[in-house]
Design a protein around this nucleic acid. Structure first.
Length: 148
DNA sequence: GCCAACGTTGGC
DNA sequence: GCCAACGTTGGC
């Protein structure tokens, strides 16, 4: 039983991967590189907020450009776990802080991801409006390979 | 608690 | 600019 609990804790503690969307018009990956780190706030969706709350320091995050670009363009890292979003007057939602790790050598386009059978189950493809979504280890590896 | 109306996101 | 998906709101 103790072993069971330990296994569960290990699972919870294991590093996870995520994907966040941003319109480059309002905040691009280049902006993140320029700023060094940024508060990821303004998320007003419960499912997305749950994912923000599940993020741990050091988790790696794919940075996706929506509306324009339509591609994963960089990798970021969680540098501060969830805290109350100061831009939410009702105080219901949370924010995290992200820092840039690197821009991808080759952006991975939405079209390429849709065309890749290994990514058919990806959360962001199945629920296109979700602005913060989990990425499985397998999906993560596939996408980084596509970016090489 | 249901459901229609409405608003927002995001791809095309 | 349109439309699909989907979340939220508000009347009942």
């Amino acid at each position: 039983m103790a072993a069971d609990r330990r296994r569960k804790e290990m699972k919870v503690m294991a590093a996870s991967h995520w994907l966040v969307k941003s319109e480059p018009n309002s905040y691009s990956y280049a902006d993140l590189e320029r700023d060094g780190r940024t508060v990821w706030d303004g998320v007003r969706n419960n499912a997305a907020a749950l994912h923000l709350k599940a993020m741990k320091e050091g988790d790696e995050v794919l940075f996706y450009h929506s509306q324009e670009g339509l591609a994963v363009v960089g990798v970021a890292r969680v540098v501060r776990t969830a805290f109350p979003d100061a831009t939410d007057p009702a105080g219901r939602f949370v924010a995290v802080e992200l820092a840039p790790i690197r821009a991808l050598a080759k952006p991975v386009t939405l079209a390429a991801m849709k065309a890749e059978p290994a990514l058919a189950g990806m959360a962001m493809l199945r629920q296109s409006r979700l602005s913060v979504s989990p990425v499985s280890d397998a999906e993560w590896d596939v996408i980084l390979k596509m970016a090489a």
